[in-house]
């Protein structure tokens, strides 16, 4: 966990790399291409890059049209602005099951100083509810690269990829390969399981380290594929450890915690706690300060585990 990189940086690099090999890849952005890192693709393949201006709804439907004509579009903006185009995503992209890759950056509270208007904390919930939609939340740069490569070679309809603004510690090995609906076990322990996604995976690992110091051994699962979700891994975690804590940079309603709770309730009920923002908007601040204030720190995760013991 020494290296640190932003998932959006890995996204920009992966797009540029895949663009060389796959001519059908086209990229759209809504006036944020420097921030989303799609500018790298734009500079290299200007004929396949569409600057759409500040028009996210137009961008989503244009991407749908491109996909219908055989292109493989990647459309990017900040996560909060995908929520604005939710009905376009539903009716033009998902209903027709088109291969549109929506890769949104600056998700979650760690957007930081821009404050609550820019901090998407509901996007997993609303995207997860869409038929045909897949929802992926990479935990680090290695996983982001893997996911982009996977999406180019597995064209199974629409997908929402949730990326972050800030640099996060690397949690996956270089040889890691993404597989849909497959959680990755990053640490094993019999007392509880922490299921996390995005940057919360690294914080979950820190919490696990802290707990181990007190003799509490926990399993840590990286649940980067929130939809489809790894039902078997959740059931196994419930049966093996009997206690589950979820951790996400998202409202506890409808996100990873909600998805895991649905699986547990139907297949293997056990006591659980959800770490995430608690049905509230964020505010301006430094990412670390915000994670602490809104209950997303390693202490919060460790505390949730202890509360189940």
């Amino acid at each position: 966990m020494t290296e640190k990189a932003a998932t959006r940086d890995a996204y920009g690099a992966a797009l540029e790399e895949m663009g060389a090999k796959y001519e059908e890849i086209v990229v759209l952005d809504a006036d944020l291409s420097e921030s989303t890192r799609t500018s790298r693709f734009a500079k290299k393949y200007p004929a396949r890059f569409f600057q759409m201006g500040i028009s996210e709804q137009d961008m989503v439907c244009t991407a749908a049209g491109l996909a219908s004509a055989g292109k493989l579009p990647f459309a990017s903006s900040f996560a909060i602005f995908a929520s604005r185009a939710w009905e376009q995503i539903r009716n033009m992209v998902c209903r027709a099951n088109l291969n549109v890759n929506l890769c949104l950056t600056h998700a979650g509270i760690t957007v930081g100083a821009d404050g609550s208007s820019a901090q998407a904390l509901e996007d997993i919930a609303i995207m997860r509810a869409l038929p045909h939609m897949r929802v992926l939340v990479p935990s680090d740069d290695i996983e982001t690269t893997q996911i982009i490569k996977y999406l180019v070679t597995h064209r199974d309809g629409p997908v929402y990829v949730r990326l972050g603004r800030s640099k996060v510690p690397r949690v996956n090995a270089e040889k890691y390969r993404f597989r849909a609906a497959r959680a990755t076990k990053l640490r094993s322990g019999g007392d509880a399981t922490i299921i996390a996604c995005g940057l919360m995976v690294s914080i979950a690992l820190e919490a696990a380290e802290m707990l181990a110091g007190d003799g509490v051994e926990v399993t840590v699962l990286n649940m980067s594929s929130i939809k489809p979700i790894d039902v078997d891994a959740i059931v196994e975690a419930s049966r093996a450890t009997g206690r589950i804590v979820t951790a996400e940079e998202h409202n506890i309603i409808g996100g990873l915690g909600g998805a895991v709770a649905e699986v547990l309730a139907e297949h293997a009920p056990c006591p659980m706690r959800r770490i995430g923002t608690r049905d509230t908007f964020g505010e301006s601040g430094a990412p670390d300060e915000l994670l602490k204030k809104y209950g997303l720190s390693k202490d919060n995760i460790a505390g949730a585990v202890r509360s189940l013991m």
Binding site: T62, S68, A69, G70, A96
Partner: peptide, 28 residues
């Protein structure tokens, strides 16, 4: 619904979206 009807080039019904989609087809 283009998934159900042969000959349809778009799934429409919610207003305001068809021209964006057409632009995408034209760009391709």
């Amino acid at each position: 619904d283009m998934l159900k009807t042969p000959g349809l080039d778009a799934s429409t019904g919610s207003l305001g979206m068809g021209l964006s989609y057409g632009n995408g087809v034209a760009l391709a």
